[in-house]
Simulated assay, not measured.
Amino acid sequence: MLVLGIESSCDETGVALYDSEKGLIANQLHTQMAMHAEYGGVVPELASRDHIRRLVPLTHAALREAKVSYQQIDAIAYTQGPGLGGALLAGAAYTNALAFALNKPVLPVHHLEGHLLSPLLAKEQPEFPFVALLVSGGHTQFMAVRDFGDYELIGESVDDAAGEAFDKTGKLIGLPYPAGAILSQYAKLGHPDAFQFPRPMLHSHDLQMSFSGLKTAVLTAVEKTRATHHLSPQDTLPENIRNDICRCFQDAVVDVLVAKAKAALLQTGFRRLVVAGGVGANWKLREELSSLTVQTAPKRQPENIKTYFPPLDLCTDNGAMIAFAGAMRLVHGVQDAEKSGSFDVKPRWRLNEIVRDKMN
């Protein structure tokens, strides 16, 4: 079965082809990073217009890469949500028009399910069941994943997601867009003990998370630094202090995520962890979670946890994860393909709702 995947939820346009026998055979991606950098963040209207410009040439490029024709495609999967409404509509409209012209069925896919399943595209693939940590843009969630389509939300951020906190904190200290990714690079140059930032909800005895208070602590540190060094709001922070703030902020976020990951594994009894989403590319998070252990009782030996990550090029939004998720839902009988035609998008759509949507 050959599935074409279309991703357009935010600021990346992705088109890919997944063959259920051969695997991923084409993956084309265009990022709008340079365009949005001029505005310091994603401009939804510009994002939507750019998706429309890119979808046709990217589809042609994917077909050339895979050396297949339009008629060889069995189904077309697209991101139905969550995401920016206009951006989602661009991808949904294109998918349904193409499917109608080719007389092919369509597969609406949940964006976060794509991220959740993306580690299955790596050479070393996890087996079910596992705990999934989704750290993608505006989402930080823990899911108990028992099988394809069987996902239970067991914890999430109650305010800013980790990715949002990275971006907002980076912007707060004067970093250009995309501030979160730049922040993690400067963190490599900082000292971990330079600032004492809080670890919000670290001992909350549940799997909820909060990062807005951490962002406020960084703001306080920045204001004190400016006052101490007699800096105006327009002046840049000294490099060493900037790097230290980046490092200490990053370590605080990672400490919370690692602690909650351990708690999720103990709560579920699973011993496999899957990490997916843009923040899953963070070097410190990968370092800490790659050597994760849990201890079920004080006198028992710690148990090693096997942690799985998607390839780095599949951490950001991409068509490969959408094509794969659509194909797997078909192969495993979780979802039926639909006729092209009327469609809708779901800018706000919780991942655990897709199981209920299928049952109703």
Rank of each mutant, 00 (worst) to 15 (best):
D193H: 10
L314M: 12
R271K: 14
E338S: 03
S212G: 09
G83M: 02
G213R: 11
I73L: 15
V253P: 00
A34K: 15
V218N: 09
L292M: 14
A221I: 01
A62G: 02
K215Q: 11
T31P: 02
G5R: 06
W349Q: 08
K339C: 12
L29R: 08
Q32G: 05
K224H: 13
Q234E: 12
V345D: 03
M321L: 11
S184H: 02
Y308F: 15
E45D: 12
G81T: 04
T95I: 08
G86N: 10
A93F: 10
S184G: 03
A93P: 09
E45T: 09
L2Y: 08
L89E: 14
C246Q: 12
Y18L: 06
E7G: 01
G14W: 10
V109H: 09
K284P: 01
Y78S: 05
P310Q: 07
K306R: 15
L98C: 04
G23T: 02
D357M: 01
Q335E: 13
M33A: 14
P192F: 02
Y18S: 08
V274W: 00
A16M: 12
R271N: 12
E338M: 14
F128L: 04
S9M: 09
T228H: 11
L121P: 04
C10I: 09
S157T: 15
A47D: 07
G326Y: 01
I354P: 03
V334A: 06
E164A: 11
P178F: 04
E288H: 07
R329F: 05
A281Q: 04
G190E: 03
T216M: 09
A77N: 09
F128G: 05
N27D: 15
S48N: 03
F148I: 15
E21T: 12
D19N: 10
E303S: 03
Q28P: 00
R271E: 14
K171P: 11
A16D: 06
T216Y: 03
Q32W: 10
A297M: 06
W283L: 15
K171E: 01
Y94N: 00
E21R: 14
E65S: 08
V158P: 00
P105N: 13
A281V: 01
P311W: 11
A325D: 02
F309T: 01
V15D: 04
H205D: 15
R226S: 12
A297G: 09
I6D: 07
Q32K: 11
P192T: 03
L2I: 15
Y70S: 12
V218Q: 11
D147E: 11
